[in-house]
Amino acid sequence: MPLDPARILAAEPRSTRISWAEKDVQLYHLGIGAGPDDLRYTLESRLHVLPAFATVAGGGAPGVIRALSVPGVDVDLARVLHAGQSLTVHRPLPTRATATAVSEVTAVHDKGNAALLVLRTEVSDTDGPLWTEEAQTYVRGEGGWGGARGPSARPTLPAGPPWRTVTRAVRADQALLYRLSGDLNPLHADPEFAARAGFDRPVLHGLCTYGMALKAVVDTLLGGEVGRVRSYRARFTGVVYPGETLSLDLWPPEGDPDAVPGSGESGAPGAVRLVARAVGREETPVLDGTVRFG
């Protein structure tokens, strides 16, 4: 079997030194749709770091791909999908830094017709912890060994109309620009590879959608105050194609309007549930997540 769960879970954590500077941050922001009106994201003299930058910091492969290099994993990249991503920010991300990232697979779930690997990464610099992230890698056709299935409950969509809806256009070349931050998976650029993976054309990176959605929430609710984001968890429930338009519905968690920053006292802590859809294909959400603020 290409996956050896016992060997995967026994693998030693991997420690890597990563570095980034202002140009890396700016390129990432451009890759998730920042433009001329977003100088806090694009101009070095005003630069703030959207926390989702953590998913590409250092310029290497994202967690969903790094999990494939763990001993005990030998799978076809065309069978791999990014199932989910979580991020907890311990303090605002600096515009330039050198840090240490320690990663290990903490779970291997048997989904029957697929396997799900959870890669946890802790990142710190000389001043202490910066962020913690978890990437969930879904490998089609690699389940069925009799292992634990793991969590499988899917959250229900909120009832009633959203508190607010915002739209964001995805450029036709968005994936080509975003991949320059480090995710060179050919699924997002090569039509032949995309066809082998079961798609009629290259799809947008899930983490690009992830970053675009967080930016929309921060800009809509917090006036761009990126330092207020505490955590962001999302499931990737569908694909986005370059050239489409994202529609993001925002709800207070569990229908509590006081939980939404901006609806009550300015600067108050809270959270927001977000569900993203591709305009014209609204029947299936593409991302379902929760952002928490301090």
Rank of each mutant, 00 (worst) to 15 (best):
A11F: 02
P13I: 06
R14P: 00
T16C: 00
H29I: 01
H29Y: 01
G31W: 05
D37H: 11
T42N: 05
F53K: 10
V64L: 04
V64E: 10
D76L: 13
R79L: 14
R79A: 14
H82A: 09
Q85M: 05
R96I: 01
T100K: 08
T100N: 04
T106H: 01
G112R: 10
L116S: 11
E122L: 12
S124V: 07
S124M: 03
T132Y: 00
A135Q: 06
Q136F: 05
Q136K: 13
Y138T: 05
G141K: 10
W145P: 05
R164T: 12
T165R: 15
A169E: 14
R171I: 00
Q174W: 06
R179P: 05
L180P: 07
L187M: 12
H188L: 07
A189N: 11
F193R: 12
F193T: 12
A195G: 13
F199N: 08
L204V: 04
H205L: 02
Y210N: 15
L214R: 09
L221P: 10
G224Y: 06
G227F: 02
G227L: 04
S231C: 08
R233Y: 02
R235G: 14
T237D: 03
Y241T: 14
S247H: 03
D249N: 12
W251L: 05
P252H: 08
G255S: 13
G255D: 13
D256G: 12
D258I: 01
A259G: 13
P261H: 13
G262L: 09
E265A: 15
E283Y: 00
V291Y: 09
R292E: 15
